[in-house]
């Protein structure tokens, strides 16, 4: 196994909507082969109509996806998965309601060829502040939120607009590095979380299925051989309000590399082997926050890269 595997952690306390999000991503996989690893006491949390077969703790899911439970040992489960040489495009790790996704992300770097694309933490809009003050679970919930790149403030239809504002403000204070995204049924567009190996060859895509915050996408053609780390860092700057950036650019030596940003997390990885040329750099943000010119300026501030709106 030499190909690199992108991984996204999905965390948050019990009942915050992790399972709903996982099912939404499986439904929107659109040809991506997802491997979902679940660590919880529950049954494997996959909607029945998605399941094709069950063998012990491993579920086969339509579209070439799988789901399995990893008990107490995530690292071993991933190593076994990789050793099985199964074709996987993206790893989704649904952590248990009491697990600390930041700690898990740190441990994932110990497995060769795994790239953590980001940590998404779900928060139940009705109860998250109570949970954070809970005698037993408070510090665990706060640590979960603090580790997030994106916090999905879920079930906002159950609270008032004033409460949404207050809770969002509290979350931004509590988890200073996270982007907060309100949602009703955790049904984020898959494009926000997943990558695809052939993404740069696709045309435009539209954020869809998200029923609260209106998301928007801007795409750029990137020219030049530059410092991709610096570029990624620039795009992760809070002032740009981007939720997600992904695309292929050339580094100083002309080699193709993949740039990933989720919230404040920026990473650069070798491009998938199938990729022949740079493609579109896709930036996703909340519609009223995203500013194409500001993004283009930020890219231009990292010469010799230059951006042309696609």
């Amino acid at each position: 196994m030499s190909s690199r595997l992108p991984a996204t952690l999905i965390g948050g306390y019990l009942g915050a909507g992790k399972t709903t999000l996982v099912n939404a991503l499986l439904r929107g996989a659109d040809g991506r082969r997802l491997a979902v690893l679940v660590n919880d006491f529950g049954e494997l949390p996959i909607d029945a109509d998605l399941i094709e077969a069950r063998e012990g703790n491993l579920l086969s899911i339509s579209g070439g996806c799988i789901c399995c439970s990893f008990g107490s040992d995530l690292i071993a489960a991933i190593m076994e998965l990789r050793a099985a040489d199964r074709p996987i495009d993206h790893l989704l790790i649904e952590t248990s309601g009491v697990a600390l996704p930041g700690t898990i992300a740190q441990s994932l770097q110990l497995i060769p060829d795994i790239d953590v694309n980001g940590i998404v933490v779900l928060a139940d809009a009705e109860s998250v502040r109570d949970r954070a003050a809970d005698r037993y679970m408070g510090d665990t919930v706060l640590a979960q939120l603090a580790a997030a790149d994106i916090i999905v403030l879920n079930k906002v239809d159950l609270i008032s607009p004033e409460q949404i504002s207050a809770t969002t403000a509290w979350l931004k204070q509590t988890a200073t590095r996270a982007r907060v995204l309100p949602a009703q049924r955790a049904n984020l567009p898959p494009e926000l979380i997943l990558t695809r190996q052939d993404e740069q060859t696709k045309g435009r895509f539209f954020a869809s299925g998200h029923d609260t915050a209106q998301l928007a996408t801007v795409g750029f053609e990137i020219d030049g051989n530059g410092d991709p780390e610096a570029l990624a860092q620039a795009l992760a700057d809070a002032s740009l309000h981007l939720l997600r950036v992904k695309g292929i650019v050339r580094d100083r030596h002309g080699a193709l590399v993949a740039v990933h940003v989720m919230g404040r997390r920026a990473s650069v990885e070798p491009a998938p082997r199938a990729v022949q040329s740079p493609g579109r750099l896709v930036c996703i943000g909340v519609a009223h926050e995203i500013d194409a010119k500001a993004v283009a300026d930020a890219i231009a501030a990292r010469p010799p890269y230059s951006a042309k709106l696609a």
Binding site: Y13, L14, F41, S96, G97, V98, M137
Partner: peptide
């Protein structure tokens, strides 16, 4: 820092 929970109260 305080240690880790391996089960949630509800569970």
């Amino acid at each position: 820092p305080n240690g880790l929970w391996y089960v949630a109260p509800e569970q």
